[in-house]
Amino acid sequence: MKLLILDSGHAEYVSGKEAPDKSMREWEFNTDMQYRIKALAEKHGLSVYLTNPNPTKQDEMGLSKRADLANSYWQSKNKPTALFFSIHSNAYKNTFNEARGTETYVASNASQNSKNAAKYIQDSIYNTIKSIDPNAKDRGVKVSDFTVIYKAQIPAILEEYGFYTNKDDLKILKEYRKELAEATIKGICQYFSIQYIPSDSEKPEPPIDLNPPSVEEELYENCIVYSSDADENIAQILSWDLKDCIVVSLDIYKKGLGKNIYVIGNACQSLKGDYSFYGKDRWETLDMVIKYIKGN
């Protein structure tokens, strides 16, 4: 199991933190990027945990709490290889100005793995932005003891994709999120030493496997499948008590991802029996699995 913990900076009810022309708010950018990166990470076989999955209509979450959530979840999964990635966009003053660029932060107590991740991801994001705008600025890897990365017990970095107080950076933050997410996952794959597969790569469809993989071939002991945003929240809660577990959406689920398949909510109608536990709705599913966990 390889674990990516995503931390979407800020929440909707945080004042300020918006472009001078009010065309973008930071929390919205951070949240959108979080779910774009999550989808790409899961397609590359990474397990993903979100510290701040629902910032809509919420006030700010404490920085120490974010780190605590990350540390607790990592420990609950038996401390796998992991990366904590905090997502932000930058600002300088409250009017449009010339300050711009991409920068990645590590804390003063950063491990070499943190520094490696920062370099891989910084280089990948900057190179992508440079291909969009030749005048893009590389602000490099920097050191600052932001609470979320200083208190994280795993390799941790904080990303500032660009300045929403700069018109050129703001255009990229608003219009090129797909490219930014791809650049991010490319750097993340380099950190985890896994093959990066571009989303737009044209690959022939693999032949249908008429012989499902045996238990020995399963990638994870447990796999939780969901089909909606609401179901995903339940799936993440359930995963806290399951060892060696991956959480995936129905559209990317494949046979062989797990020995035990837990289906949340309406996804069970599509899988047609390819599961270990399910219920008529997400709450019944959750109740059934909790009873199963307590009995083992």
Rank of each mutant, 00 (worst) to 15 (best):
K43E: 14
W240C: 12
M24C: 03
C189M: 06
Q269N: 15
D145R: 14
K79F: 01
R66L: 01
E103Q: 11
L242M: 12
K291L: 07
Y292D: 15
F192K: 07
S276W: 13
A110F: 02
I188S: 09
Y150K: 15
E160T: 04
I87A: 01
V247F: 10
L210V: 07
N135G: 10
H10Y: 11
G256T: 01
Y196H: 13
G258M: 09
P80D: 03
D138K: 14
K142V: 02
L46M: 12
N211L: 02
T285E: 01
V14N: 12
I197K: 10
G295L: 14
S86L: 01
V289M: 11
E218S: 15
I87G: 02
Y49P: 01
N71L: 03
N116E: 08
N90V: 02
Q153V: 05
K186V: 00
S111E: 04
E12R: 14
K151V: 00
V248D: 08
R25K: 15
K22F: 05
F29S: 09
M24A: 01
E182N: 10
D244Q: 05
A19N: 04
L257D: 05
K142R: 12
E159H: 14
W283N: 10
D32E: 12
A19E: 02
K291G: 06
D251Q: 13
P134G: 12
I264A: 07
E28V: 07
I261V: 15
T285S: 09
M24I: 06
C189P: 00
S131K: 12
E28D: 14
S201P: 10
A117F: 00
S214R: 12
I252D: 10
N296P: 05
F96H: 12
F84I: 05
I37F: 05
L3K: 02
